[in-house]
Design a protein around this nucleic acid. Sequence first.
RNA 1: GCUCCCGUAGUCUAGUCCGGUCAAGGAUUCGGCGCCUUCGACGCCGCGACGUGGGUUCAAAUCCCGCCGGGAGCACCA
Length: 521
Amino acid sequence: MATLEGVPPSELSDRLDRLGGPEASRPSASRTEEGGVFPDLPNAVDGKVVLRLAPFPNGVLHIGHGRLLFVHDYYRTRYHGKILLVFDDTIGSAEKRVEAEFFDLIRGDCELAGVRPDAILYKSDRVEAQYPWARRVIEKGGAYVCRCPADTLRENRAKGSPCPERMQTPSETLDAWERMLANGYGPGEAVLRLRTDLADPDPAFRDRVLFRISDLDHPRVGRRYRVWPMLEFSWAVDDVELGVTHVLRGKELVIEDRMERYIWDLLGVAGPPFLHWGLLRVREAKVAKSKANREVRSGLYDGWSDPRTWSLRSLDRRGISMEALRAFILSFGLSLADIEVAAETLYAENRKRIDATTVRRAFVADPVPVEVEGYPFDLASVTLPNHPDRPELGNRSVRAGPSFYLARKDVLGHLGEEVRLKDLVNVRLPPADPAPGSAIRAGFTSRENRKLPRLQWVAREGAVSVDILGIEGDHAEGLAERSVASARPRDILQFERVGFVRVDDGWSAGTSPVRVVYGHP
RNA sequence: GCUCCCGUAGUCUAGUCCGGUCAAGGAUUCGGCGCCUUCGACGCCGCGACGUGGGUUCAAAUCCCGCCGGGAGCACCA
């Protein structure tokens, strides 16, 4: 369980002093309704908490970002604080580029998730705010300009051996730094590095890069800046300047805490404490941003809400509510443990919310025509409840025989047997599958409800053709009962024995087939 | 390899800070039964866990030490 994990001993004792002793700051925690435990934010003052949500704009938000969103939103609510949406759009790299379209898409994702930021900022507007801090670090002797090739730099870091540049005096560094800012170097020719300790036991912490040069065109600020800060440095600056009171991030970013603190200590400024959560993986969700981007662009995926992306949009499209996702995610608490959970748990959470209010409809996949000989004349239609356990959801009238469609799988599984057409009559299927193309001829046997295998059916008259977009991007064709034709986009239905589906937003009502997206069992 | 983090049922989680109320609670899965949704929704019932070895103690999931296992970081990405 996370408590004051992110806080170094030195800082901790400092805090205890300010608070008047250990009792005052003993970490305690609260539980959400879902069962997750969230520790108190250290020294949080109700109404004064400022959090920041910092996505990198190179993709839409997916299920994994849900934790980022909902944990921040949880603490905002708990402390009546504010959330800054800060697009972390420093220049990135050739492989990981800032892309213009995602600014709006991500804002839309936040909206969708119900996490409305109190302010929206852009790192690309704050580049110049970084430079004075860089200068202060250099003047303190905390950094040097390194002109080694990236490979050499990496090797030296691994071996713990210094490069000659490390001997620079602050004024030499300042000159080199000014030259960087004045376009004296090309990309990759010089970086500003923090001077830590090359003997630091953690190789990851040795003389990290603070600024580098990039010629990439930025969608918001173009080529106005060439010297861009790295994430750690920019946050060391902005967490302080933006008045962030608590930093919440995934534990893959713990070393960044140390970097920020190192810089604050060097400059003698105070910064906010850090809290972390562990890695969350949803087993079924193979989240690969770059692949998703490629496939959306190539048209192989059906937009940013293709189910294969596991984007928040795709979950919404499938009829999985953001409230269900929120409950699912908050149930994990702020644990540092790495978790891998099955999507089934999320589905269960969603079912709790929609089952009681979702109407049932008959759907038959891979339909084969079946004629029932001797079918009773008075059963041209029947009235069925919209929900087996919820009479308040009403009834609907459904066309019936004598001409039906049954699922091929059902027919083949019961050849020669007597079966019950659910809620209707009993029939005997022929012993063998007749020639393809012609209708199967079944014989009416009786009407009473007997203990027979029950088959889903759809009347031939009024059958509606339906296309189900599956989780793997696959399409299943089939026929549904007539009432499905009058569904509206975004309606959620349960196709009995198939699962919950949502009528696709992109479907124009009245056209055939009815397009639905599969949600979950 | 180095650094950090984490180990409660198949999975997720509560309990661990402050040892006894924990013969370990909840959710989900799974199994059985019920049901005019068949394995598939729903309802009822049930199985199932403190990684391991040692230590401290009247008493250990909880404290201490070793071991084992899992994850992350070691980018001029974020």
